[in-house]
Design a protein around this nucleic acid. Sequence first.
DNA 1: GTGAGTGCAAAGAGTTTGCAGTGGG
DNA 2: CCCACTGCAAACTCTTTGCACTCAC
Lengths: 159, 159
Amino acid sequence: MPDDPQWKEDYEDAVQKLRDAGLRITNPRMALLKVLLDQKLPCRIEDLHQQVGPQHCDLATLYRCLATFQELGIVRRCFLNDGTSLFEIVSPNREHNHHVICKVCHKVESFDVCVAEGLEPLVRKLGYRDISHVLEFFGICEDCQENESPATAKNLSKK
Amino acid sequence: MPDDPQWKEDYEDAVQKLRDAGLRITNPRMALLKVLLDQKLPCRIEDLHQQVGPQHCDLATLYRCLATFQELGIVRRCFLNDGTSLFEIVSPNREHNHHVICKVCHKVESFDVCVAEGLEPLVRKLGYRDISHVLEFFGICEDCQENESPATAKNLSKK
DNA sequence: GTGAGTGCAAAGAGTTTGCAGTGGG
DNA sequence: CCCACTGCAAACTCTTTGCACTCAC
């Protein structure tokens, strides 16, 4: 992946942002950045932790790095319907995507349309500043529909 | 409010749904339902708890009732950017709204356009079933912009 | 060398669960 | 009268924080 010129550009960009902010280029940060750049889709923090290598970076550090990256506009954090979050790299090279998330297996699919952007001016007109939005679709994916027993479909969801 | 025919209809509907599901009509459930029907906007659970009267219903019960209501399609739960959730009654009499939520004071404003509904067929085409979506805007409201010191605006957000 | 950054452990917030007691049907 | 429902307290999950140590600059 690091051979990809686009990957490299995003990487350099992020490093520059850190430098500009007077922040240090540390191993955990670089490891995380590389993992983030390798993702095609937004990622749960546990997955990131797994990929960075749990021995290379503490979970607490991961949260701190991600918070830092978010402040610098390097990553976007997106809160899901189950209270957890996904993180994804922000890059002018990557489109602003929304996602379809399976309620059962948490698989994420990209969805390259953003109908919501057009509404932000309307929100601005209401007097709001620093506007962002969340648009995510939730459903049950084909695989999970098959694996789901007819019984569970009827039950009120319980463990 | 209970004089409002629409209120009454929604109320009866919900009670019927409970009956149909073989669930009991209990005081906490009815108290919660009434409070929910009185809300004009989605509500944090602490607010609901306050309005029901903390002495009339335990927080745990409130969560359980809300989960039940959600299963029955009586309420919708919407997770916010800060990890908490808002609950709102689902009613054919009320439009499907989206909201603008102030990042600072958590004020919620209604926004009576839904651009996302049109995309659900696309998601269905991807093989998903039981589709729902979340579309919320976040920003800083006028009041909070005024009250914010120029200093905090520059700072990386910290307590 | 020095302070920003880290790992570890402990705290915190919001939410869920186990269990014994209660009350709706 | 019985079991679904509740209240209470404890557990759980995800995330943040405090503190002493470390390593980037």
